[in-house]
Computed example of a mutant assay.
Amino acid sequence: MTTTTPTTPTTPTPHTAYVHGYSPQEARRLGDQADTLAALLHAGTAYPPGSRVLEVGCGVGAQTVHLARSSPGARIVAVDRSEESLTQARAYVTEQAPAADVTWHPADLFQLPFTDAEFDHIFTCFVLEHLRDPGRALAELRRVLRPGGTLTVIEGDHGSVVFHPDSHHAHEVIGHQIHLQSAAGGNALLGRELEPLLTDAGFTDVAVRPRTVYADRTRPALVDGFTRKTFIAMIESVRDDAMAAGLTTAADWNRGIADLRRAADDGGTFHYTFFKATAVSPQP
């Protein structure tokens, strides 16, 4: 046994481990998700030419492409704390949207390297759910947003899942992903909390609207792009972690995933709700 010298406790980092990992499969899943849901999630979001737009937590650039396409002429600054993700994002956006005006910065969301009121608009998608302290992050975003500038936040909520054929075993494997994200300090149910989070952070004119995905065999693109390649793929990615944590057995996991996949078969249906919020930085 190795003996270690006790250390003085420190304040826990506000960041969490990204529960889905950084594999090539995850990068593809993020791309499938962004492409499948672009019309649903980006509808109504467009920034004027010349406006300064900050995208926080750009990851591999999956959302950046659609942000740039919706706002030609906007000056986008995309930040992420992962240098590897930024490298992928730069290459992806250069390929998919070569005319986009995007600059890239490695940055800590909780200590952004920008001056007060530097941006006209801020966009963040699927980021707050992975933070221990989303309220603190929102306070930092408010700092760099000019008075009267807008913030757009999009988050999911795994508690909104409804599918047919229903299955207790399928709900259990979804619950394991929710548990693992919570254990890492995140919150897979954050979508329902956006209004109080934004209001408590001092934003005004907060408006939250559900964006619902419903897929059945009459919508094959959504069945493939969302039910299979986005949601089920996300749940499948945490199998090893769920097993290592003792949350499930191989037999129970396989049964739950098999039941969940039935929602993507003929006769199956799948429903999920995202929440899109807009808010304004208050005037002094």
Score class of each variant (00 low, 15 high):
F275G: 06
T36G: 05
T45L: 15
G135V: 02
T94R: 14
T269P: 02
A233Q: 03
E236I: 03
E118W: 02
A263P: 07
D265R: 14
T45Q: 13
H179F: 08
M234Q: 04
A233L: 01
D101F: 06
F226S: 03
P48W: 04
P147V: 03
N187R: 05
A137L: 06
A38M: 04
S71I: 05
D133A: 08
Q181M: 13
R239Y: 00
E118N: 09
L109W: 00
R69F: 11
P98F: 08
A74E: 07
D240W: 05
Q111Y: 01
D133Q: 04
M234E: 07
V65M: 00
E95W: 03
P24A: 15
L141Q: 03
L41A: 11
F126H: 12
A38T: 10
D157P: 01
S237M: 02
A34S: 01
E84C: 01
T3E: 08
D240T: 12
H42N: 14
R211G: 09
P210W: 13
A221G: 10
Y272Q: 11
P14L: 03
C125D: 06
A250H: 09
P12G: 01
T269N: 05
G202D: 11
E55H: 10
G225D: 11
V173H: 10
G202A: 14
A184D: 13
T115A: 15
F231E: 06
L222A: 14
V280S: 03
R228T: 10
Y22W: 06
F114K: 00
L194E: 13
H66E: 10
T3H: 12
H42P: 09
A170G: 03
L194P: 07
L151M: 02
G59K: 02
P220C: 13
A117K: 15
L40M: 05
H66V: 07
T2Y: 07
G185M: 05
T7F: 06
P72N: 08
T10I: 13
P106M: 09
P165C: 15
E129Q: 10
H105N: 01
A264E: 09
W104C: 06
A188D: 11
L86N: 10
E193Q: 13
V102N: 12
L198R: 02
F114N: 00
A97P: 03
Y47D: 05
N187I: 06
G225E: 11
T2N: 13
A183D: 13
N254E: 12
L30G: 00
I257H: 01
A251F: 03
R28N: 00
E172P: 00
L138I: 05
D224S: 14
E26M: 07
T10S: 15
R255W: 05
V280T: 15
D216P: 07
A264K: 10
P49M: 08
T249Q: 11
I76R: 10
G175C: 14
G268W: 11
L30A: 04
H179Y: 07
A62R: 11
R209S: 15
A215S: 14
P49S: 08
T94W: 04
A279M: 02
E83D: 12
E236T: 08
A137W: 06
